[in-house]
Design a protein around this nucleic acid. Structure first.
Length: 425
DNA sequence: TCTGGGGTCCTAGGACCC
DNA sequence: TCTGGGGTCCTAGGACCC
């Protein structure tokens, strides 16, 4: 029996220590050294090189808690540089698309790729080919897991990360139970902290045990999502590849402040800026929002000054993406939830109920709307040409004493001509 | 001193309707 | 005194993901 088989095959391609790898691209001196990248505001550690992991530096830990290890071991530290990472990500995704246009870009550093059109016997080689081409063309190392379902390809990827070859395929393996038995339940895609606790209470500690549990029990004692996970572990596809770039349903812009903010005027500047930002984002995707939410809060970690957190949502009379309108409503909301005497740590704006903007005329459309729309377009164009926030509204402020900290930025921006690094051939 | 940001989906419960 | 049953829609909050 050597007939050629074409079973369903989903690959999960995951960039290794993605942010660290991006920084290393332009800085060969840190290639073999321990490196970490910090979250916005230099708050937490969100990417670690293998050398940093080996030192015991934990994912998601506050930077200040790991500072001692970092200093002692001369770990290289970077503030996050999202325009750089976004640009490198697009290059990686573009490269992947050459293998199949049926791709789901799952996050900045991960994509699912349908490889069903390759035969079972050649699939592992294809995996190696993808990996080496991505490395050659973008400089980014990846791990690749291939299996019949997305959940299983996550499992395969998890194993691939620990292998030198970086590629693991579960295609054509008759009995995968021995493999699943070695996968902790909390490493299964879709099983977080709460579910892990629940499964442990019920004697389920690894992926094999979940796979062999009855669906009715899972659905009854948990929910449909959990039973889908179990089905997928059995090789039955329940979660489709989402290859169509479907439009998002909400848009959030929020930041922690570089220092605590107590003054309403400063909060107003911040919220106005976030509103502008969010409006611009949804305009660029031709969306309009049905409602806007504003939230403010003090630090949940330092309650000695009292804790306060509040938010409020207001519907627009007519769905909009107009900055002037979003800022105006946001200011009204902020004034209504602001309370004096607190040290605010974070605030944000959320645009929800997004839908397509095109051709949305209604009874109340007017010439004035047209003028505003064209004003928005010219703001967007100018900002696109001359850099972010060239044109803004006065309410967004210019001082921005609350702006986030980015002490360790590599200042590399592949989208900004003046930041372009030079590369030797 | 210092603890990120941006998403999705599901469920329970309330409001409302007939 | 007696106080149904079933449906839809919306929202808040929780859990999960990266």
């Amino acid at each position: 029996m050597s007939s050629i088989q074409y079973t369903r095959k989903i690959a999960l391609i995951d960039c290794n220590s993605f942010y660290v790898s991006c920084e290393r691209l332009f800085n060969p001196k840190i290639r073999k050294k321990p490196v970490v990248v910090l979250s916005n505001n230099d708050g937490c550690i969100i990417s670690r090189s293998n050398e940093a992991k080996a030192l015991g530096i934990k994912m998601g830990e506050p930077y200040f808690k790991e500072k001692e290890i970092i200093v002692k071991n001369n770990v290289q530290v970077f503030s996050s540089n999202y325009s750089l990472y976004g640009d490198i990500s697009r290059r990686v995704m573009r490269t992947l698309k050459r293998f199949n246009s049926d791709i789901e870009i799952y996050s900045i550093d991960e994509a699912f790729l349908d490889l069903s059109n390759f035969s079972d016997n050649e699939i592992e080689n294809i995996g190696h080919e993808i990996r080496s081409i991505v490395l050659k063309w973008t400089g980014i190392p990846t791990s690749i897991g291939i299996a019949k379902t997305k959940t299983l390809s996550k499992v395969a990827n998890h194993i691939a990360k620990k292998k030198k070859s970086g590629v693991v395929s579960l295609i054509g393996i008759e009995n995968i139970d021995p493999i699943l038995e070695k996968v902790d339940i909390n490493d299964v895609w879709g099983v977080g902290r709460q579910l892990t606790k629940f499964y442990h209470q019920n004697g389920i500690y690894n992926a094999k045990q979940l796979k062999n549990k009855s669906n009715t029990w899972i659905k009854k004692s948990s929910n449909v999502l959990s039973s889908r996970t179990a089905m997928e572990l059995r090789g039955i596809p329940c979660i489709d590849l989402e290859t169509k770039n479907s439009k998002r349903k909400s848009c959030v812009v929020s930041r922690s402040f570089g220092k605590r903010v107590e003054d309403l005027q400063e909060l107003r500047e911040a919220i106005a800026g976030y509103s502008l930002n969010a409006s611009e984002k949804i305009r660029s995707e031709s969306l309009v929002a049905k409602a806007i939410t504003v939230f403010v809060r003090t630090s949940p970690f330092q309650r000695n000054f009292g804790y306060y957190s509040n938010s409020k949502t207001v519907d627009f009379p007519i769905a909009t993406n107009n900055s002037i309108e979003t800022v105006k409503v946001a200011m009204v909301i902020l004034d209504s939830i602001f309370k004096n005497g607190y040290r605010y740590q974070k605030a944000g704006v959320m645009l929800t109920g997004l839908s397509n903007a095109d051709g949305k005329k209604n009874l109340f459309s007017s010439e004035k709307d047209e003028k505003i729309n064209s004003l928005m377009r010219s703001i967007d164009n100018t900002n696109y040409k001359y850099g972010r926030s060239t044109l803004s509204l006065a309410s967004a402020g210019v001082q921005k004493g609350w702006n986030m900290r980015r002490q360790y930025s590599s200042k590399i921006d592949t989208a900004d001509f003046y930041c372009l690094p030079t590369i030797r051939a």
